[in-house]
Design a protein around this nucleic acid. Structure first.
Lengths: 116, 116
DNA sequence: CGGAATCCCTCAAGATACTG
DNA sequence: CAGTATCTTGAGGGATTCCG
């Protein structure tokens, strides 16, 4: 039996932190795109339909701050910036896989009312 | 065309749907509490420090609409309402486990700047 | 090209008070 | 007890313009 108080809260807090990283609207699409390998800023922008500049910048900064992606700047003119998944970021694969696995079993087979 | 393939977009959409279910601030704590078994409304409220009535109701309704929990009403006075994880809800365990597993490897060891 | 700065809007989330 | 009903705040997200 799991301990029900302090350790319990800690576990929830950890998951909260994770969701702060991958819970954003564009986090998964970005990570998913970067699974293919290093991408430039504009490549990401083009690879992810619907995202806008500000959101991409914001998410990338958040991910960088959380050690998910690495940002590399090449001093060219015009500037070249590349984004790569870190080891920490790459290890999100089983998480996303499990998410997708659960989803393929249940979600989108039914209709969700989306009550407001 | 623009996308690599259509299954790619579908996959992302599915994960989006999942995060709509478990991405809420209180979703995981509630699910986690319900892993212990059926709980009454007030038991949930007491088991989850910091949550307020409105949020608990809202999350539970959302989860019920998504087939994660089942709501059972007993016609007593005062009313008795019980919440139980459905099979679909129970199968979130590997997902949460994988989330936690990733988190315990990386999160909370470093410090997150939480830049704005 | 890769952002930063601004403005704007919607909605998640919180605090309380009330009710069948 | 198990919720509604309101009001309020703030964060997340979007569109656009500007800059080195």
């Amino acid at each position: 039996m799991i301990q029900k108080n302090s350790a319990d809260c800690a576990e929830k807090c950890v998951i909260r932190e994770i969701l702060d990283v991958i819970g954003g609207k564009w986090s998964i699409p970005i990570i998913h795109t970067l699974f293919d390998g290093t991408k430039r800023f504009m490549e990401l922008e083009r690879s992810i339909p619907g995202i806008n500049t500000r959101m991409l910048v914001k998410e990338l900064k958040n991910m960088e701050a959380n050690g998910i992606v690495e940002r590399t700047v090449y001093p060219t003119v015009p500037p070249t910036v590349e984004y790569t998944l870190t080891e920490k970021g790459k290890q999100l694969e089983p998480v996303i896989h499990e998410l997708h696995n659960w989803g393929s079993k249940f979600v989108s087979k039914e209709k969700k009312p989306s009550l407001k």
